[in-house]
Design a protein around this nucleic acid. Structure first.
Lengths: 104, 104
DNA sequence: CAGCATCCACGAAGATACTG
DNA sequence: CAGTATCTTCGTGGATGCTG
């Protein structure tokens, strides 16, 4: 999950704002393409993190919602965020002080 | 960090087993190539997570060790591990039950 | 509106050969 | 032993066009 670029942002939106339509997610994540958004949502659905509800209307409406399994990730997000707030400045300091060969 | 394939495994070895030589890391991570191991170690050094100690001997000896900054990541590893132990079975169950289109 | 199909760009990673 | 150099492979992600 973490390894894919847009999974966390998508999940974050659904955890934070509740049930959302495809287009509403696009508004919240202006840089994501429709293709990638679809791919990530399918994967999240397959893995049990979101539910997809399709309404047979015109124009079409599809809503996505985070599951309890997704909500169980809250401590992971919290711990990562805490670490970042407390320690990321040290990373930046190390980078500024680094004198060795450039990292590819 | 998480986004790169070998960063976590390398860091895990150094946090778990202490100071290690380049070759000792290769033994613990048999699938990593020397090139990638070097790249990740350089990046970890640049970002302040490991120290590199070079001994001017023949044959050469280089030792890597996790810093306090690396050790500060312990809660992140713990939380992720806890989540996995408690919930990964649910992901596998969701995958087994999934009937939709295959995810690229 | 919510997508799918197609093609393309790019960077991480792998394979292999060589070296101080 | 601990790398470096070079080439190739692979997969994510981006851009564009089309459709029920």
């Amino acid at each position: 999950m973490i390894y894919s670029k847009w999974t966390s942002p998508v999940l974050w939106c659904l955890l934070h704002d509740g049930r959302l339509r495809f287009g509403e997610l696009r508004v919240r994540l202006p840089r994501v393409t429709a293709k990638m958004l679809t791919q990530r949502l399918r994967q999240l659905e397959r893995d049990g993190f979101v539910t997809r509800t399709h309404f047979d209307e015109v124009p079409p409406r599809v809503e996505y919602e985070a599951t309890d399994l997704a909500r169980s990730l809250a401590p992971v997000f919290t711990t990562l965020g805490e670490w970042s707030r407390r320690h990321f400045a040290e990373v930046e300091a190390a980078r500024a002080a680094y004198k060795g060969p450039l990292v590819s």
